[in-house]
Amino acid sequence: MANNKMHGIDKAVLDWLDEELQDTFDEDYELELSESELSLELKKIYNKQHLSPLDRKVYFKSLLALQAELIKMMTWAEHTGEKIVVIFEGRDSAGKGGVIKRITQRLNPRTCRVVALNKPTRNEKSQWYFQRYVQHLPSAGELVLFDRSWYNRSGVEQVMGFATPEQVEEFFQDVTEFERMIVRSGVRLIKYWFSITDEEQHLRFLMRIHDPLKQWKLSPMDLQARVRWEAYTKAKEDTLKRTNTPEAPWYIVEGNDKKRARLNCIRHLLDQIPYKEVPYEPITLPDRVRNPEYERAVLPPELYVPKKY
């Protein structure tokens, strides 16, 4: 066998595949970049709080394996017409957005949607409370991830005084039956609560303040969340106690270690879905039709993006 051949595969092809794999790893690494202007002192404090970080290679290999399973799961869901809703709740900076990014990163955006609703409009405030969420529930073959959900009412709306005690109580009276209706309609409903300690949230907020790439994540509401930590704790405990049902149980994700939290949550999500490998016909790339009389037009240079890098 020639030196430039390996098991029947041209070395140039292997080099290209290796480069593609490295690009895949880099794609994940880009999501991890979060310390562009982070002060060294904050880094030291944060590292002391996380003495046993998950090895980067172990993390990325585990993540890619789980993402491959997510693709299998969604292929099965599309094939069977399964409808899946996953709710992500928890304190600000608890890691909800991070795990949602890793779930959706390699899935088809046509069948996997993220719902992150803004505060209700005046018109929506006049509607049935659950009405604006119902329109985002999945059709057959879809996965919908709620980055915060109808539990805003028992969380931020209650704590910040945007809902009256009567409205909060009415929510608790209605929400369990509302979720039973969703489940009875054939939707798989999975609810995650991301939990972090007071100290961990404090550090993450400081990191956001000192990182220009993350300052957009801080809002006046987030800062109030720090002030009202105990009120949010009470609201969380009440919510979990009153809305944890056999049809729609809560699952708590310990989020102090971001990487482990992501892997644990995705693995648990996969375990909740009885997906199977869907058989499909092997895909073969057809030959391109070539017309010997065709000449490619020369486009003017001003149409091209300048090559700055």
Rank of each mutant, 00 (worst) to 15 (best):
R204M: 06
K61I: 02
Y304E: 13
V289L: 10
S139N: 12
E142L: 08
V115D: 11
R148N: 08
K72G: 12
E277W: 01
L33R: 08
S139R: 13
A261H: 08
Y192W: 10
E124R: 00
V159A: 03
G8P: 08
E169R: 12
D211E: 15
T197I: 04
Q67S: 09
I266E: 11
H79E: 15
Y232W: 07
I266L: 07
L223Y: 01
D174Y: 09
V175C: 13
V175R: 07
Q105W: 14
K234L: 07
I209Y: 06
E142N: 12
L63K: 03
T243L: 05
Q127F: 00
G255C: 04
Y251V: 12
N3R: 01
V86S: 14
F178D: 08
D198T: 03
G81H: 15
G8S: 06
L51N: 06
S34H: 00
S185L: 11
Y294G: 01
V183F: 11
K11N: 07
N256E: 12
V134F: 03
I266A: 08
L206K: 07
V175A: 11
T245N: 13
E124K: 00
L203I: 09
Q272D: 12
K48T: 05
Y251I: 12
Q272E: 15
K119A: 03
K48V: 01
R228F: 02
S39N: 13
L51E: 11
G95I: 04
E293M: 02
V156C: 01
P220C: 03
T245W: 13
E166V: 10
P165G: 09
N123W: 02
E254N: 15
Y46T: 14
P165V: 05
E170H: 10
V85F: 07
D10C: 03
R228P: 05
R267P: 06
E20V: 01
L38Y: 03
L51F: 06
E166K: 13
R288I: 15
N244E: 14
R226G: 02
V144Q: 06
Q224E: 13
Y275C: 05
Y232E: 07
D26Q: 14
T243M: 08
M207D: 05
V168Y: 10
E230L: 04
W76Y: 11
S195G: 07
A68Q: 11
T176S: 15
N3S: 02
